[in-house]
Nucleic acid binder design. Structure first.
Lengths: 166, 166
DNA sequence: GGCCGCGCGCAATATTATTTCATTGGCCTG
DNA sequence: CAGGCCAATGAAATAATATTGCGCGCGGCC
């Protein structure tokens, strides 16, 4: 006789249930994602094993999506960051997601946000130089569904922090 | 007419010297910043010690600025992300950096980019709800040096990747 | 050829991650 | 109020990983 646990789990574990220690853990991991668990536990005021269990729990609940190295784009040959506001002719969902799928394949497009209600997007792109930036802008303008393109070139960035306040 | 010097005098090219293995390392660390050095070495095709030495070298050269956990803002109570294009009345450097320093102290402001040549900024903010968003917008509008505020609310984000192509 | 100098990888050691397990305290129930 | 249940903790043991030390091979350069 087998006893099988049939208890249902909601597919999105909401986890409305995190305390001051969890917040401390999240804060520290947003600042330094490669901190050792020992040091993290020390800062959170608990011992290592429960600290690691909390981290795993936060990961599985989706509060932590992943960990990433922050690289220096200009030192890697991507000297230009710019934003583009793109307006589409149609507001039909098929056209919108078609545009999203299209630009998602471009490696220079790092972010794509749909904004406002109707057919506008804000993109963040990187380019190797001004010529490259022009090519990308023209490639956007040339897309059939695109009706309007406004480029916002970044002169300098005074603040850029990961995550959200905790 | 004011002329803004856009020339990029970089004294920052300490390390012009990274090869295919380094690029592989950077790529993997951008995707998963908590990968173990052993696994990273395996993917880079070298053994662990030289791999770790390369990572340290990339960190010290500034190609890797840091590591961060990517968190889920909405699950942490920050359900709204929006962008704001802010225009200042003055283009004097004192006013520009004054504005930057001011908004940098707001925890809801996650990015602040100066755009174009003259006194405009693009900000990315997070808010707990619509009321909070309104408060933030009004707080921006109320700043003495601010002349124009345009809000771009994010409906959905179809792409958001860290770093740059490598 | 012989001498660097750099970067590699093996092996040893230090540190960290992870599992195991006994214990504690809160809380419901009889 | 005792007893049992549950969740979470931390000490200790073990597994895995990070880091150091060192000898070797390869390519450039007299």
């Amino acid at each position: 006789m087998e006893y099988v646990d049939l208890s249902m789990k909601t597919d999105q574990n909401e986890l409305v249930d995190f305390d001051a220690i969890d917040r401390r853990i999240l804060t520290e991991l947003q600042i330094d994602g490669r901190i050792t668990n020992v040091e993290l536990a020390r800062r959170a005021g608990i011992s290592a094993p429960p600290c690691l269990r909390r981290v795993r729990r936060l990961e599985e609940a989706g509060l932590i999506r992943g960990y990433h190295a922050e690289t220096d784009g200009s030192k890697l040959g991507w000297s230009i960051t710019f934003f583009v506001i793109v307006g589409l002719e149609s507001q039909k969902e098929v056209m919108l997601s078609g545009f999203e799928k299209q630009v998602a394949t471009w490696e220079e497009v790092r972010e794509c946000h749909m904004i406002r209600g109707g057919g506008d997007f804000l993109l963040r792109l990187v380019a190797r130089d001004a010529a490259h930036e022009n090519i990308l802008t023209q490639r956007l303008t040339g897309l059939p569904e695109v009706s309007r393109v406004q480029t916002l070139q970044t002169i300098r960035t005074s603040k850029n922090v990961a995550g959200v306040p905790i």
